[in-house]
Structures are given as C-alpha cells and as structure tokens.
Amino acid sequence: MIEAVDLSRVYRMGTVDVQALRGVSFAIDRGEFVGIMGSSGSGKSTLLHIMGLLDRPTTGSLTVDGVDVLALSERERTRFRLARLGYVFQDYALIGELSALENVFLTPLVRGAGRGEYLRAAREILDEVGLLDRADHLQYELSGGEQQRVAIARALVNHPAIVFADEPCANLDTATSKTILDLFARLNRELGQTIVMVSHEDWHRRYFCRVIHLEDGRVDRLEDQACMSHADVGDRGAMI
C-alpha cells in the first residue's frame, strides 16, 4: 500500500538546513491502522505530509497504492489526493462557509458526482459518524469533536485507499479523543480502511496495529502489535 525507501527531507530555514527526515524506510499494508509516534520535532508530521502528497521528500522513493507518486506532476498529485487519499487535520480544517453536509460532499462534487449521488454519499457517511442530525450546521455551530467527525466523514466520503490523520485528537479532551479513536478503529475494523495516524499520546498506541517510532528524523523502531481483532477496542478505550 505504502512503500517508503530512504526518505529524507531537508528544510531550508534562512541560511540553515534542517534535516527533518533522515533515510526513513518502511512499508504499510492495506487494511492497517498505523500510528506514527515520536517526540516533538521527530519528523512525524513531515513523514505524514510526504506520504499524503502534501510535500515532497528531498531524496528517496515513495510508492502509494502502487503508484510512484514522486513522478507525478502537481496536477496529477492533486487528482491522486482527491481520488485515493483522505485527510484529517489536527484542527479539523473544515471550510467555515460550508455546512457539515457541504464540507462532506465537496470532494464527490469535485469528482463529478451528480447531486443525488453526492448528497446520498455525504448523508450516509455523516450517519456513519453519527452526525446526520447536524448536517446543516456550520462549523461554528459544532463542537470540536463534532467538527473532527465531520472532517473524518469528509476524508472517507470518496472511499480513499488511505486516510491520513495528523494528530486528530490534539485539540480534543480525552473523552472526545476516545470517541474519535474508536471511530477510526471501527472504520478500520469494519471497512478495512487503511489509516495512518500521527500521534504523540502514548495511550493512542493501543489502537494501532503497528507503530512507527521516529526519533530525530529516523525510524527508531517498528512496533508490531497484534493487529486487533478490534473487538476489544471499546474496552481498551474504556480502560484509559
């Protein structure tokens, strides 16, 4: 699903080069719920952005869903993101002028779906995340948890190959975070959705099938957990 080989990323900060990633290699299989963890500045978000085609590595190679994504033009990368990837950002990143429903049906609309089709798809997925009754509400009328669920619905509505989540619980309280993580786990379990999530909260680790630990831009260790039967996710969450 994702194959990264020797990825490095150097940022130019004024006259100083900052090495955010240093020769990172790993592979992620379809249907995995992978966590990328590490301390602040370890390169977690940089790696996620590169995998999510929001940034380019300085060196290395990257295959996503069977495509050498580094060879794609900007326009092709945009189409690739639209068709095969979904994003959940730390601070929800909803479009403020759009209702929950409109935020969700935006990408099917861009893909050329008819009105009936995109409305149905958006309502279904909002129902899936438990927000159908809030469909017509604008961003400021939704709580943080609700906004993040709308963002998840938006990420999922096009049935992406991979969902990337960049610290999706960073601005949420523990109870709401658990709801969101439970939702991710359920989507992974029931739909086989591949999810790659960045987190620095140790207790999130329990939800992941596999954890890529980064330290100073390098893979510190790969931690395979028993990729959950997922049956006990709720119980695990409750234990926290």
């Binding site: 945009t78 068709a83 990143a93 861009v110």
Partner: peptide
C-alpha cells in the same frame, strides 16, 4: 489556510 485545505483535499 482554507485555500491550502481545499488544495490538500484534492481541489484543483
């Protein structure tokens, strides 16, 4: 930021 998000989610 909104424009960045739109581009990120695949809008040309």
């Amino acid at each position: 930021r909104q424009i960045g998000i739109l581009k990120a989610i695949g809008i040309d």
